[in-house]
Nucleic acid binder design. Sequence first.
DNA 1: CTGAAAGCGCTTACAG
DNA 2: CTGAAAGCGCTTACAG
Lengths: 342, 342
Amino acid sequence: MSVPVGRSPVMADVARLAGVSHQTVSRVLNGHPNVRAETQARVQSAIEELGYRRNSSARALVTRRTGVIGVVAFDTTHYGPAQTLSGIEHAARADGYFLSVVTLQTVTREAVSEAMDYLAQQSVEGYIVIAPKRAVVEGLADQPAERPVVAVEGGEAPDLPVVCVDQVGGGYLATRHLLDLGHRTVHHIAGPGDWLEAEGRIAGWRRALEEAGAPVPDPLHGDWRPRSGYRIGAQLAEEREATALFVANDQMALGALRALGEAGVRVPDDVSVIGFDDIPESEFFTPPLTTVAQDFSEVGRRGIGLLIDLLEDPTDTVPMTPARSVVPARLVTRVSTAPAPA
Amino acid sequence: MSVPVGRSPVMADVARLAGVSHQTVSRVLNGHPNVRAETQARVQSAIEELGYRRNSSARALVTRRTGVIGVVAFDTTHYGPAQTLSGIEHAARADGYFLSVVTLQTVTREAVSEAMDYLAQQSVEGYIVIAPKRAVVEGLADQPAERPVVAVEGGEAPDLPVVCVDQVGGGYLATRHLLDLGHRTVHHIAGPGDWLEAEGRIAGWRRALEEAGAPVPDPLHGDWRPRSGYRIGAQLAEEREATALFVANDQMALGALRALGEAGVRVPDDVSVIGFDDIPESEFFTPPLTTVAQDFSEVGRRGIGLLIDLLEDPTDTVPMTPARSVVPARLVTRVSTAPAPA
DNA sequence: CTGAAAGCGCTTACAG
DNA sequence: CTGAAAGCGCTTACAG
């Protein structure tokens, strides 16, 4: 009445031990009604006694559902993607889905479609793609789309279900904050040109300036990394023109802060600086950084929610306008911003 | 000669189109020898024409191999785990494995075994567990171990294959560097008591001090976050005793730097500070931080390598002493350390 | 409420 | 070099 050594127990083993057919075991496992309570109990204890675990491959073969969601993420030293991935993972698990992850070094269309291909080999049911660049999002929309795809964390994108933080609103918030402090205008250290987040933040910054009738200086593009912020910060310090600086992420803000400090420019007395992301370090920068916080976990949660809706939607009709969910950004005021110098 | 609409092509469809049996298609797909070149070409083009993709569940059912590796990771705002995960992912993909990831909020034995249970439902072939706490590693070693497990990124652990950075060596390196600079002793802001990394760094620090016959102050425990470094830094600044400070990670070092700065203690003139991790920000701290770099990607790579060896080892014998791989740490000298004040 | 039958889409011996 | 047969471990109608 026991299982041969060296082989994991299968449903038939449980059935034999419980004195029922394997179909009844299946019913118990799947929570079907129409199983006598007493039978169910017998099956349950047989399952426990044997340490039986259902063979997921066999199940997937017949149900045509693997329960696996493919995630294409990016290998960055950035704070956001890791947080987003974590939000995605928790939400997926809460709904009983598994996550298969591919992380990319380079953010290109080709790399993304290769990653999706790889995941397709594993029969994922749908995809979440962390798609921060315009080209990638557009490449995604072009794809034949055998399975649902949700883009996450870039900016808003056409023709694709998307979850993102309100980058435009965040950029607006940051700039507005500085203008309200009496600054004549706000200079901007932007992210790389093809990043949706960079574009959104520029748009918000520009809108706030235009609304206030303030001059709109050329945005200066960094590469998200501290060093680029340092370089541009040094340049701005030399020009001695800016009194307010909106930097598109906290890492570049850190570099800028350092360059300003080295040039003898006091923050916030001479120049106010605001960042974006609210990384854990930013509170302890010199000085503590005013910044814009993004709720990455919420983005992950909503992304999974959207995808699962798509996967489980019984109607199977593609809506004319894809779903879209925008998470608001939030201003975090600290020490690095102050009223404009007299 | 084509596939009914609404159904993905199966092997039989390819076979029909190529005019062979489905077994021959299988042979081509699996790269078996003994297929005529011409037959192979016909099959290949049928595959392409139909856009056929092998059903992974059916394959796994018969081969008893899913090609999936389960990863238990931690949801931290830390730099290391994300980098490690990325290293794991690249290595796994290079070897044709898939990664199913669970991220944990809390690092407890229970959470880890729950996560492994969840992954077992998906029939993972083995596990990589990022296990930074002693209790977790010990819990892992206790488990019945139906499938191979490799622990990664904690310290060295008994009874379990492990890949980690040489934390003891790193702590030694940091402390030695400060002693060589002429400091009488080195104070230590440590990580939380139950973390293996914290323990290893303390051990290395202690060894260097003892070797040099220097006094060994009590280590002061933070929680890895900047705020705890700030708190302890403020306390040390008040005591005015330390001239050299080894902080167990860069985030706490950032907090300490800030506390010292606020107290009017100059770094490195009055106090030298060294961190651990070499996060991208540390180069732009005030002042740029001397620190100890860990090659997280290498840890991930070796972890996967070890696990795959275990999975593919034909002998199937468990060695008496589990494999163990230690990645060296590396000193990165910047501005925050200097000779002891006269 | 429960069981006997069929079949999901592959791979693996076994013939030839 | 290639095909007919069996079987992996489940779920899903279909009977009863």
